[in-house]
Design a protein around this nucleic acid. Structure first.
Lengths: 159, 159
DNA sequence: GCGACTCGCTGCGTCACGCAACGAACTGGG
DNA sequence: CCCAGTTCGTTGCGTGACGCAGCGAGTCGC
């Protein structure tokens, strides 16, 4: 009986996560439309605002799953829009660091935070322990999906 | 002090969810590459496999955030690939129902489930209560983001 | 100082997408 | 019964994000 309950929990969670992830994709698109950007751009800006240091163009490519060529184009768009600037790396003059422009970036996170305020009330409903549970789960899922991606890439394609 | 701890939990969760969502986007791309499909296609197939009934083309558009024109093209691709079939709706002969092809769809969910096995071990580490907490959070976040999207669309663009 | 490598950039072709207009099918009022 | 008005999915068209391959510039090792 407890196994049956367990199975139901798995099923519910599977459905919940699909809807959750789908709503994120749609939400990301909505923000992009709102700011006149592309979903990829918003996705990257979200990551950039959380990055510990300005990434190189190559790292931008890895973060977004694009090729370096497309990453160059991505940075072109964002630079033209004033969201980032290109800074030469003095350590290695081949490299170009992508530096966020705080003012401009705030306009993006403002949309995020406008939602964030409603988010806050959602988070307030959780206890500390619950937050830790959710955070831990997301971190593990993140690690796992990276491991799986490496596996997937090393496998032959079914076509 | 407890407020400080609370703030740290928020911050950690914010970071975790960004990474989590980013890894989902990358993972979705990896699956798409692996199957020779597009991220949008995989995204939609995931939703289709969880849908209670075959959606119309219009509903496909709403699920994915595309226009009806692009949804037609999406269905074209998937039909050509043998993932879905078009079924006329006898209630309203203008409508076209998009019906999944179970065999073909299994090949997609197989990749999901191959990951799912590793996922299973991740889920096994959680207690029933923890699973409920996570599921509830995802459901609320889903509802919230839909509400926010409606608000965002009704707002004027900052340009 | 010379080859091998890595960095980011750039033509080029492909194709997903939004837009707008279209025919077909449904709906309602006269 | 019929004739606007609406809604359905489809389709031509233009735009632009993307992958690919090749490039000069900079770095590293023998």
């Amino acid at each position: 009986m407890t196994a049956k309950r367990r199975a139901r929990l798995y099923e519910e969670m599977s459905m919940a996560s699909r809807r959750y992830l789908a709503s994120y994709v749609l939400f990301n698109q909505a923000i992009a439309d709102h700011l006149g950007l592309h979903p990829t751009d918003v996705q990257f800006l979200s990551l950039l605002s959380a990055a510990p240091a300005p990434p190189t163009v190559r790292e931008v490519a890895e973060m977004t799953g694009l090729t370096t060529g497309s990453a160059t184009r991505l940075v072109d768009r964002l630079e033209r829009g004033g969201y980032v600037t290109r800074t030469p790396d003095h350590e290695d003059r081949r490299r170009v660091l992508v530096t966020p422009v705080p003012d401009r970036l705030d306009r993006v996170t403002a949309v995020w935070d406008d939602l964030g305020q409603a988010w806050q009330t959602l988070l307030d409903e959780h206890t500390d322990e619950e937050l830790e549970v959710i955070t831990r789960h997301m971190n593990r899922a993140h690690d796992l999906s990276h491991a799986q991606m490496r596996r997937l890439r090393s496998q032959p394609k079914p076509d």
